[in-house]
Amino acid sequence: MDPVIEIRDLRKTYGPKVAVDGVSLAVGRGEIVGVLGPNGAGKTTLVECLAGVRRADSGSVRVLGVDPQRDPAAVRARLGMQLQEATLPARLRVREALELYAAFYPRPADPAELMRLLGLTEKAGTAFGDLSGGQQQRLSIALALVGDPEIAVLDELTTGLDPQARRDTWGLIERVRDRGVTIVLVTHFMDEAERLCDRVVIVDRGRIVASGTPRGLVQGDGDRRALRMRLPSGTPAEVAAEVAALPEVHALTRVDSTGEIEVTGDGHVLPATILALSRHGVVPDDVRTLGRTLEDVFVAVTGADPSGAAPSQPPPSPHPGGPHPPSSHPTDHVEVRS
């Protein structure tokens, strides 16, 4: 893989507050890499150092073979950036904004084509201040792409967009990537990261606390599995007890709200459970396996609610082979036997 971004041991402090604390990261050409983390984790500072708009205290950054700290202008022509909370003058119109920003780049994209791509053609003559939040956001994305960049850094891409607009934007990002653009996506939406990213890094308190493909992170390094099923009425309690006692099973609980039985155990928990039931002639209904979600991983490594405003309070406890977090599904479990 041809790395277009290489960060080594990057550090940045604001007075006593450490924003980025020794981050190393490499991004290959054409990848979509997600940077996840609670608010205040240092994500924005990290990407600002990438674009050379913020100077790191130590460590090295190479973007397209250039050090953005030393030669920010060389990077800025080839890296498009969409910043959180950066707006435009209220009276500037959509087409004017795109044509203005296009004039800053040596080989810009076609503003008319970008407007078409982002569904802004009808709004070309509308002032920024009169656009809806979603339209402003789309214009902001268009401005990040107007320089026809090799790398696009998108901070809080779909914040403020409605669900349909979010899906449309995801489709757009995939089309942009298909043109060979490398994308660094800063987000706290787990569904967005799972859907779009080839790879994610989870940042907490300025450090990378987990990284990998969304799928790899979800599977974790253990092989815990969980399943839920419904047992036919009249199934003797001993049957459930026998399942709970199986070596493959860690726990068996009844989910009060649904009347389902949740079984957790190792990688063989599903066949072991089904076989044990079938020995008693019991055929369970509605068997479904429960996957860990990226959100579960996020909560486990940062101790924070991904959508929440509060930065993590308890110390983050990474789980290399340690106990796995509870599934994200309904938690009103009542232990029947274990």
Partner: peptide, 18 residues
Amino acid sequence: ATHRERGVLRRLSTTPLR
């Protein structure tokens, strides 16, 4: 100052504009 307040200066600082 209005450009600064609205983040326009911040956005401009990410472009090749001097």
